[in-house]
Design a protein around this nucleic acid. Structure first.
Lengths: 146, 146
DNA sequence: GACCCTGTAATTTTTAAATTTACATCATTA
DNA sequence: TAATGATGTAAATTTAAAAATTACAGGGTC
């Protein structure tokens, strides 16, 4: 199981909102066009980000803006907002090991030991990248692109 | 997208082979029973591990044993053997961002910057856990279980 | 040569992810 | 104050990925 494309779409939306949120009314339709997705998927993602306080959405009239300094929005926070237990879902565990086998009976606990360490390391790594970094990459790449 | 259950099944098999590989003939049928999977899935995993030199399999007559010291078998190596580009598949990227939008046009490269850092950190974390550690956890948990 | 195993391709089934449809709710404005 | 154009969500459908099954061609050993 992997972290789905939702994280990528979320980052896409956040860059877009940072770049255009103040000047134009950024709706789920516009974001869906830009990301090549569909408005409902976008609204679900946006909704999760809003509940976490990352962005604010004008209900009724529409439009989205950032609600938080760039350096407080880490990739970890984005993933967590979208899929609260994404860390524990990083590795899948086969669901029906034999309880009659010593290995089968204990495998889940054994794997949990290692997977928890890995999950902690991954979390640290994700906390280390902020939207500020991502947007700096974006500006650099965009300049090269011209 | 997440790393599939194959890694967990592989570790399950490796513990089983370590524990019983010398005394008994460990076949794909036995491993499938223990893991609650099926023999073909097991054979595919076992086959990948064999090609990487982690285990050796007696063709024809059957039976599997470790071909490597425990501390040389890292979780990274196991994952890599099973799914060579698992690191780059950690995050999915939405496939059709709009090339007409500045964000859409550059999003893939922007995400690649961050995802590469994260992939490197994850790789380091996985390299840090060996089968020796896992089996030590297994013995500890098994003792508690009695 | 019979038996039991592995290796692998091809198909089917299952499961998860993403999209679409539908509609209730809310703010603006004409 | 009713029309408009947004969001928020639930439910159903579609699509794509993962896993299991079926099938069979090898290879050792008794």
């Amino acid at each position: 199981m992997h972290i789905s494309t939702k994280c990528s779409v979320a980052i896409h939306c956040l860059i877009f909102i940072y770049e255009y949120g103040d000047k134009k009314k950024v709706t789920s339709d516009i974001l869906a066009l830009s990301a090549g997705s569909n408005p409902v998927t976008i609204r679900n993602i946006i909704s999760s980000l809003r509940k976490d306080g990352i962005i604010s959405v004008k209900f009724g009239t529409g439009g989205t803006t950032l609600a938080c300094p760039l350096n407080e929005i880490t990739v970890y926070r984005i993933c967590k907002a979208i899929e609260p237990d994404f860390v524990s879902k990083l590795f899948g565990i086969h669901p029906l090991p034999s309880p009659l086998c010593p290995v089968g009976k204990n495998i889940r606990n054994v794997l949990d030991c290692s997977y928890q360490k890995i999950g902690n390391d991954l979390s640290d790594s994700l906390k280390n990248i902020t939207l500020e970094d991502v947007i700096s990459d974006y500006h650099y790449i965009q300049r090269k692109d011209d």
